[in-house]
Design a protein around this nucleic acid. Sequence first.
DNA 1: GTTTAGGTTTAG
Length: 766
Amino acid sequence: MPVHTVKNASDLDTRVLPSLQRILLPNLNLMSDAVHSSVKGKVVQKGPVVSCRQGDYLLKAVIQEEDLQQSSVSQQASINVFFFGTMAKDFSLSVSQGDIVLLAGFIISKSPTEQTDRLHPCHLEMSGPDACVYSFPNVFPRYTYVPLNELKPRRIVNVYGVVIFFKQPFPTKGTDYCSTLKITDQSNAKVGCTIFSERLEDHPKIFTIGDIIRLHRVKAQVFNESMTLLTSLGWSAVTFDGAIGSPVEPRASSRTFHFGEADKRTVETLRQWAASQPLLTSEPTVPLSSVQPRMYFDLSCQLLAKACIDSRCMLLKVWDGTKCGYPLLDVAVATDTWEGQSTTSKDREDMTANILVYDNHVEVAKTLKPGTFLRLYNLHAVPQRDSEQPPDVPSRLSFHLHGGTSFGRGLRVLPSHSPDLQPLKRLLESHADRAVEKEVNDDTLLEVWYTPPESVGKCLPTVFEPEFYTVQTCRHTLQQVSLAHVKRSTPPVVCHVRAQVRSYKPRKLYQCLKLFCPQCKSIEEVPDDGTIAQVFQEALRNSLPCSEHWAVTSSMDAPGAGRVITMHVASDMVLDNTHSQLLFLESLTLDEMCVISGMHKNIVPVQSENRRMKLLDFSAPFLFCGDKRYYGCKRCSRSTFVEPVVSGGEMWDEHDVAKALGVQLMQYTLLIQFELQDGTSTLDALLWEDAEQFFHVSSAETSANQDLQDKVQLIMDRLHPPGSITAKRPWLELCLSAYSVKDNGRNRVCYQITNTETRGNFFTAH
DNA sequence: GTTTAGGTTTAG
């Protein structure tokens, strides 16, 4: 009799074994009616499977009654339970310490160890056909947090702390980026932390000193006679704003993490304590209006434009809504090297600062988009010596973000909703308001577009509909040419053109989402739900559940269908968080799959053939991840089922699953054919390889997200307004690549729109 | 059983 898993804790009280009488453990005795009773409790101890007698197995566990008042907890609330045979193995695989279990079909015996272990005077034996276990996995293990003054070397711990120093991640000589920070807590111990991760987005999102950080699975270590913390396998970091009263919103990377009421209380307590420590309050950022010559300071601002000076230097034009008290140095840059707003109206001119960003910071600066909010750490205000100037004239200030990371020097994007950005945003909005009142010209419209969308909605009357346009993102310095000229050129060649969209196809935008195989380069349509549902129906016909030596199998009823859905989990993953397990489901419909996949990370639909596991036809997704569906290439995937090599504790993404199953993953891709015109000629150009950049969406996300599909539709409606005449369609600056393809043995010239992205306010449709 | 770094100013 296998161990069953239930999804809701309440099922143990209501749905499972309703005919049996629950006995509270302290009420259980040798005279209790074992045949018609069940007991429930938390697994507080779980031993290993051991062999006993000839070839039999045994596992001992202790379960503890949970449904008791604190005051009545006695030694009789915990009882020894012995599992025999396959039950012992099943229990070992499917149940973890901390899980809640419901037991039935047990035998009650006198406990021979009552005197020594001081547990219940009886024990339970689970063997034979009637014994059964239902378990509710304790999905979120309770974490304990070690005060920073109680760290012991070589121990892996979980900690909370207030950040008192931090550096932005920087590349190491190894494979990773490294963040260094220092934290403290109520114990007043100060502990340095070193975080290593290959992925920048996994590094803790610390914005300011005083932020609160929670670290899981970090290793304590002594270095230079001080305790330090170092990331260890499976570490995670979550950060919080440190200000009392601000919402307790965990800042985490996209990977799963747990955050509950207890965490909220810990953060709030730590905030209270930090507020009482005068030395911990964070240095506020300095507005431009308070900057003094030679000072180092942190600046929160909005990026207006950027320009490349050389490979080691980048110029950022920013504003924070205040005016610097000193004359600022103007950096001369050719107009065409700017990305974003290169010139601004006169009123704004006094309020923009040019910042020279050097060396290692260029990497981050390159990725910045005009309009984003930034924080620059340890910015240096340098008075520029000018020998020509008389000594009584103040020298002009320049701002440098020097190379290196000492003193936390660096920059990062702040999310637009950050609590400490709100005053800055209100100030910028008030300026945008005044700019609209004063003068309405193209400059102003550009300015307004570069303020965030939410403020545009508020301050811009509907008559000033922002422009819609495209920009080339390549660094080609090319003369603009006509479409006729492009057609005369010999491929391969790259051209810059200015053109309108005469027509495009497919007109139904969901049809422009395709599947692309990076291996054989084939492009397929995304199957519709009818087709997929049929594949599931066909798989239902082979209804004998498969049995694989590497998987633990359990089953659940398909509601209202009189059918049982079989569930397989790789043995090595059984102990993982059920949300992150790789599940194989058999005998279910597409509708059922959609319901279940909402609750799990990775689900592979399977069928059985001679009781062996087999993937479904590749017309159906081989993997469901929440709303997302992933397909395998029919040509390039292994047609036979490959036994997945899995190990517990890892986060699996679609690439990992595909690899483990021998499936060639198909990529989502957007493909649209434009007919362009410019008065000299017309030309068909594909938007394909750079379509994500063009629409500012990810194809995979778009496949599962209606908002993103609407966004693509909205942009297409701007490029080619429905029912519009030529004169009303926008002129687009485009980068075109011309190349040859073999088509039935003949060379044909193709054109693709590349290195181009749309700009404008996509969100205010009129 | 885990390299890398282990805060402390560029020098434009």
